[in-house]
């Protein structure tokens, strides 16, 4: 465990906490894409199947359970909670899951580390996570008033991905035979998707004005 990896995981955890804070205390999910949250729930459900097959560390197990539990509870809140669900921007959140899920599934059956169910699902989870933020970014662009918590949530998610890249660079130079091409390429693609958002986020921060993405 290096500092970049730990900082990345903590930033990921912080993003989830910010989102849960918004949903649980303000009882609002305005500006949050249910599509993205469902894609994350599928991502973690398919990637963390190894909870049942491999033990890596106490830290690893606890974090996996947290990310699984939080992603499914966020989906539950947005779909079922009698107050929270009313704030969901259903008409704006129109991205189709299947346009993302199907290509990822196809890609995973062709490009994986080994042709086993576990490895195909692992690759699928990486491809899906790389694009899962797209419905959220589309929704942000359509939202005239992006509240602070939503902006911070997306910023923390992007920061988590950027820190993971630093973690891979560090590990590549410090560990023998540490090579994960699929993870790296997906990670870089995923981080690039945030580039535009980062640009406007820093602009609004520098000028101290409300975040708004150009249509």
């Amino acid at each position: 465990m290096n500092i970049f990896r730990l900082a990345g995981d903590m930033t990921h955890l912080a993003s989830v906490l910010v989102l849960l804070l918004k949903i649980h205390t303000i009882k609002s999910c305005a500006g949050i894409s249910l599509k993205t949250q469902e894609l994350y729930a599928i991502t973690f459900a398919t990637r963390y199947l190894d909870l049942f097959t491999d033990y890596i560390s106490f830290y690893n197990t606890v974090m996996k359970i947290i990310f699984l539990g939080s992603s499914f509870s966020i989906v539950w809140y947005m779909r079922r909670h009698k107050v929270v669900r009313r704030s969901y921007d259903r008409d704006q959140d129109t991205f189709r899951h299947f346009f993302l899920i199907l290509p990822c599934l196809l890609l995973a059956t062709f490009i994986n580390e080994k042709l086993t169910a576990k490895e195909v699902l692992w690759a699928f989870s990486l491809y899906l996570e790389a694009v899962a933020i797209l419905p959220q970014l589309v929704l942000l662009q359509r939202t005239r008033n992006i509240d602070n918590l939503t902006g911070q949530y997306v910023f923390l998610l992007g920061a988590y991905r950027a820190l993971y890249i630093l973690n891979w660079i560090y590990r590549y130079f410090t560990e023998a035979r540490y090579v994960h091409w699929i993870t790296w390429i997906c990670g870089v693609v995923q981080t690039l998707l945030y580039a535009d958002f980062f640009y406007y986020y820093f602009q609004s921060w520098k000028k101290n004005v409300k975040l708004e993405l150009p249509a």
């Binding site: 990896r5 995981d9 890596i56 560390s57 996996k64 990310f67 580390e113 080994k114 035979r177």
Partner: peptide, 10 residues
């Protein structure tokens, strides 16, 4: 290569 399968990241 045995450790190819070890995936310790989240």
């Amino acid at each position: 290569d045995d450790d190819e399968g070890v995936k310790d990241e989240l």
